[in-house]
């Protein structure tokens, strides 16, 4: 009986793993990374959950300082295709919603392929960058 229960839970766990993998869309949860010098924890997610192919989308961004508190910084976001030598054709409109809390409107990844998404946090004259890779299917 115990073996049956273990087997059942194993199957359920495997099913969950299968369901989580293989998606061609970006994860709906927050993507996080440290900025280059490790000063900030940068998190972003797409409004609506998915990066649409060749259609505009908005991005929520949250930036925390080393103490885990909302960082008092300015923020910009951009994206480029390293293999193609070009980036987006637009500059996203950045709205500050609160300390360390931003909304970037009008992002547009217009081609399939590898995109590097760059989020810059600037305090005074110092800018730190967090980078994320995204493969547009």
């Amino acid at each position: 009986m115990n073996r049956c229960i273990h087997l059942f839970f194993c199957l359920v766990a495997m099913q969950c793993l299968v369901a989580c993998g293989g998606s061609s869309s970006i994860d709906t949860s927050w993507e996080t990374a440290k900025s280059a010098d490790g000063t900030y924890q940068v998190a972003w997610r797409v409004v609506g959950g998915l990066i649409p192919r060749a259609d505009p989308f908005d991005v929520e961004i949250r930036i925390l300082d080393a103490q885990g508190k909302p960082a008092d910084v300015e923020c910009t976001i951009d994206a480029e295709m390293p293999e193609h030598g070009h980036g987006m054709n637009v500059v996203a409109e950045m709205q500050r919603r609160g300390t360390g809390d931003f909304l970037a409107k009008g992002m547009l990844l217009h081609m399939p392929g590898r995109w590097s998404i760059m989020i810059d946090a600037t305090h005074g004259a110092v800018t730190e960058r967090a980078q994320f890779l995204y493969l547009m299917p």
């Binding site: 505009p56 054709n89 637009v90 500059v91 409107k105 009008g106």
Partner: peptide, 16 residues
Amino acid sequence: GKQATLVRGLKSDPET
């Protein structure tokens, strides 16, 4: 709207 946001954000880089 979204389209207007794109227009305002257009880049006029030399590569265009």
